[in-house]
Amino acid sequence: MQRVNMIMAESPGLITICLLGYLLSAECTVFLDHENANKILNRPKRYNSGKLEEFVQGNLERECMEEKCSFEEAREVFENTERTTEFWKQYVDGDQCESNPCLNGGSCKDDINSYECWCPFGFEGKNCELDVTCNIKNGRCEQFCKNSADNKVVCSCTEGYRLAENQKSCEPAVPFPCGRVSVSQTSKLTRAETVFPDVDYVNSTEAETILDNITQSTQSFNDFTRVVGGEDAKPGQFPWQVVLNGKVDAFCGGSIVNEKWIVTAAHCVETGVKITVVAGEHNIEETEHTEQKRNVIRIIPHHNYNAAINKYNHDIALLELDEPLVLNSYVTPICIADKEYTNIFLKFGSGYVSGWGRVFHKGRSALVLQYLRVPLVDRATCLRSTKFTIYNNMFCAGFHEGGRDSCQGDSGGPHVTEVEGTSFLTGIISWGEECAMKGKYGIYTKVSRYVNWIKEKTKLT
């Protein structure tokens, strides 16, 4: 034993070699072989497995989906700052455009905790909710729209109204504003409101030439003092309507412009014939205590009207009353817009006519005020429907199939267009061939041609 100890002390290297040989010859039971080890760690190889990531292109799944990435790591994937920024906006807080917040056709661009709407022409605001041009839906104005110097929408209202708090709607500024039905039992019968379409306001006024200088022999019209197929109006439903009495009662109609003036057809009036105007009328054979009678003290036909040349060209006249009318729910003026808007309103496509005229061709006159909704007829169809001249200051309205029309005794009465609950004068009943005849239409004086003249002559002093 002493000898062994001496050998170990003198030859430590020998001992180490012996131990190493023993270990190498022993069977290893701690580690699995290569094949079995792979069965336990069965993990798919990654895209760049075996390579240094710093030297390969980034992978979106590896960089940002398996674990949260930084902007720089995302930049490695896209290799483009702009594309990385677009991805980053949604990656950080989701897609803010998912709810489609942009209105009126706006395009949404996502941002971090926010979004941006790219608005089409005519709109602005956070969600493109603000109209900035009158060309689109009248700028959301209830009545009139004008573009300011910086191309912003400025709404306005006709006389007797003021802008509401929203700067879009119009509200009454006087007790009985024009064009409004205020009798409670008839307010439910107000005709369907007309909503502004998209309009090209630059070209809204037709490029028409008034044929002022045409000389033409007097034409022989049949029954051209021209509501057939209409309905009984309720008291106060058309408070701007008046009836004219002269040699015979209810020979023509008219509309209240203001307390002192009536507008009617020029062919209705004769110099030297006494005319009485009755406002607030409903049943011409009954006294309903809503009527107001006034005498006409002055007749002003349009300066281009000449019955000797043509009885229905420039067929418009103004009547001055001896005493002002007292405005109330049964006696209310009709609204008159400017030339541009009167023309736009007419193009809405349908209007209402009213009167006490004959209820059928050569038949009896109506006792109760009649009204009828009539569609506008395109000019080409209008011209083809008659052998008589249709001037540019006239328009056609009615039904091709016949059966409904204005008729004798309705002449001078109103053709009105309702705009968001307020009625505007767009025409004056003038003439036609018979009444409600198939293929024939009622012919009306186009008020847009005469609004400046009306307003100039009827100013209240």
Rank of each mutant, 00 (worst) to 15 (best):
S148I: 06
C119P: 01
G58M: 08
K152M: 09
V174F: 05
S156P: 00
A164P: 01
K68C: 04
I429L: 11
E82G: 15
Y312G: 04
I15D: 02
G13N: 10
A250R: 08
Y47N: 15
R3T: 07
G412T: 11
T209H: 12
V181N: 06
I299A: 07
N393L: 02
F348N: 14
S217V: 11
V263N: 01
V92D: 15
V195L: 12
A192H: 09
E82R: 08
F31S: 15
Y444K: 00
V353F: 03
P44Y: 10
Y115D: 01
G253F: 05
S204D: 10
C268K: 01
A37L: 02
R162H: 10
Y391V: 07
V269W: 04
M394T: 04
K247G: 08
A279R: 00
K260L: 09
G230D: 05
E320N: 02
Q408C: 14
C69Y: 02
H34E: 07
I316E: 00
L367T: 14
K387M: 08
A308C: 06
C252F: 01
D378W: 03
G439E: 07
K51R: 11
L60E: 05
W240I: 01
C108A: 00
I336T: 03
G254S: 01
L19S: 03
M437E: 12
A266T: 00
S217R: 07
Y22E: 03
N135C: 03
I256K: 01
W261R: 00
A397C: 03
E35I: 08
K137H: 14
I210W: 10
S107V: 10
L372Q: 13
K68E: 04
A207C: 05
D33P: 05
R75L: 12
F348P: 01
E72P: 15
F55C: 04
N147M: 13
Q216G: 06
S107W: 04
N203V: 07
Y91E: 15
S329N: 15
D198K: 09
N203H: 10
R449Q: 14
A192D: 13
I297P: 02
L211G: 12
T194P: 08
T389H: 14
E193R: 07
P414D: 03
S107E: 12
L367E: 14
E418Q: 15
E171M: 11
F78T: 03
L130C: 04
E82Y: 05
I344L: 13
N42C: 04
L244D: 00
A317H: 01
C155Q: 00
N213V: 09
V154Q: 13
E116V: 09
N80H: 08
D378R: 09
N36L: 08
E323D: 10
G105H: 06
V269E: 02
S204Q: 05
T389K: 06
I262E: 01
F345Y: 13
H314I: 01
M394N: 14
K188W: 10
V296Q: 00
K188D: 06
G229I: 10
E53M: 07
K247C: 05
G349V: 02
L24H: 03
N5Y: 10
I275T: 05
L376R: 05
F251C: 05
A173H: 09
R140Q: 10
Y450M: 02
L52P: 15
A265C: 03
E53L: 05
S430V: 14
E129C: 02
A308D: 13
N203L: 10
N36T: 10
V257L: 06
G229N: 07
E418I: 12
G398P: 03
T461H: 14
P175A: 11
K455D: 03
C108H: 00
E270V: 13
E288C: 04
V181Y: 08
M8T: 13
S184F: 13
S114P: 03
I390K: 06
N59C: 03
E270A: 12
N283P: 04
L19Q: 02
G106L: 00
D212P: 07
T29N: 13
D131A: 05
C97L: 00
T190V: 12
E193F: 07
K152A: 10
N245S: 10
V269L: 11
S114H: 07
V277R: 00
Y341S: 07
F31T: 15
E73D: 15
V278F: 04
G421S: 06
H303D: 09
G280A: 03
G253E: 03
E208H: 11
V377T: 05
S182Y: 09
N80Y: 05
E340D: 15
C128W: 01
P235A: 10
R364K: 14
D405R: 15
V30P: 14
V195S: 13
A397W: 01
S107Q: 13
A307H: 10
E53H: 10
L163G: 01
P101D: 01
C119I: 00
P177V: 04
N343Q: 09
Q57Y: 06
C170I: 02
D111S: 10
A9E: 07
G439R: 10
L318Q: 00
E73L: 06
A380P: 13
N393P: 02
D198Y: 08
K455N: 08
V331C: 05
T81P: 15
L103M: 13
T386Y: 13
K109H: 08
S220R: 06
V56R: 08
C145G: 01
Y312W: 11
T218K: 11
V273Q: 05
R384D: 07
Y341L: 05
K247W: 06
E231D: 10
S204F: 13
W356D: 02
N328V: 00
W240Y: 03
C18L: 15
E76Y: 15
D33V: 11
L211N: 09
L346F: 06
